[in-house]
Computed example of a mutant assay.
Amino acid sequence: MDRRTETKPLLVVEGLTKHFPARNGRIVHAVEDVSFEVKRGSTVGLVGESGSGKTTAGRAVLRLIEPTAGKALFDGVDLFSLSAAEMRAYRRKLQIVFQDPFSSLNPRLRVAAILGEALDACGFPRGKARRERVAELLTLVGLSPDHATRYPHEFSGGQRQRIGIARALAVEPEFVVADEPVSALDVSVQAQVLNLLGELQKKLGLTLLFIAHDLSVVEYLCDEVVVLYLGRVMERGPSKLVYAAPRHPYTKALLATAPVPDPTRRRTHVALTGDIPSPIAPPSGCVFRTRCPEAIAACAETIPPVVEIGNGHHVACIRHDERA
């Protein structure tokens, strides 16, 4: 059975909220009431500008940072309700690929030792079986088994990211958060790593949460997309629907700046001026209203709920009916 055809979600995130303390008793509202689902065997893209809360949300789901509120139901079990000891039992099922391949690998360790640390965590035996598993992992990500004896500085950025992917896959996880895994790479290398992730997903039946700021990357790889702005969901739904008919002004603005590989296609320009506000003092009502070219007075009064407009397509905008 093709796991990509399953409709049951592997992960259900409900009301995820993460606050950080700031000076003078203030609070950083990094993530606010974020909800989404990730179907088993699919890829969901979590996108937005820098400061939108996407990396915080991804790490909170894995409890690499502790959430302030909400639920994360992984195969029916709320990860946020587990004790530290209970959570350790789930670490093997939940892994992450970090953004920067230059800083995420220990420069003092050879590749075999880097992958060996991950294998130690799941009790994998040493000796011949360990060496064979390391060689298998390197081959899986398109590297040579001979690379096991080298240090990270001997590899290119793309090769280092492949090693990071191999480390995440070492424990045979079910769910992987890919935190902007190609943003630090040259454009020519990005496509290679994206293709690798797509191939690995099909081969291993992985479920991915792919974090990115580039909507063109998400369009290529993801089945569904969740658009975040200042910690809140602006729009979410099947990628084809969101890209074909975006309903939130922020999504339109992001799409307008995304490169189009087809020279016959043109994006409609949407003006987006100014910087993202401080999460310490987010705007009242819709957090996007201070930069929204379509904002009206009512946008400052109420936080718009995320409502379904059909076929799993959701939007958080009080004026969405006007754009139907």
Rank of each mutant, 00 (worst) to 15 (best):
T5I: 00
T7P: 00
L10T: 05
L10P: 07
T17S: 07
F20M: 07
R26Y: 04
V28F: 02
V31F: 14
D33F: 05
S35T: 14
F36R: 09
E37A: 09
V38Q: 09
R40T: 09
S42H: 08
G45P: 10
V47S: 10
G48P: 14
S52R: 10
K54I: 10
K54S: 13
T56S: 15
A60I: 04
L62P: 14
A69E: 11
L73K: 04
F74W: 13
V77S: 02
F80S: 06
F80A: 07
S81N: 11
L82H: 07
E86L: 03
Q95I: 03
P101K: 04
S103F: 07
L105W: 07
P107K: 08
L109Q: 07
L109N: 02
R110D: 05
V111A: 11
A112W: 03
D120M: 11
F124A: 14
K128G: 04
K128W: 01
T139R: 12
L143P: 13
H147P: 00
S156H: 05
G157E: 10
G158F: 11
G158L: 12
Q161P: 12
R162N: 09
G164R: 01
I165M: 11
L169D: 02
P173R: 10
P181L: 12
S183E: 01
L185Y: 07
S188C: 12
V193W: 00
G198Q: 12
K202C: 02
K203Q: 14
L206E: 04
T207D: 01
L208F: 12
H213R: 03
L215C: 08
S216N: 06
S216W: 03
V218P: 09
E219K: 15
C222D: 08
E224Q: 10
V225Y: 06
V226Y: 00
L228G: 05
L228F: 05
G231T: 09
R236D: 11
G237S: 13
P238T: 03
Y243D: 00
Y243H: 11
A253E: 09
L255V: 12
L255Q: 15
L255A: 13
P259V: 14
D262A: 08
T264N: 10
V270A: 04
I276K: 01
P279Y: 10
I280D: 00
S284Y: 07
F288E: 04
R289Y: 02
T290C: 08
T302I: 02
T302L: 02
V307Q: 06
N311R: 14
H314L: 02
C317V: 06
C317G: 01
R319T: 01
A324D: 03
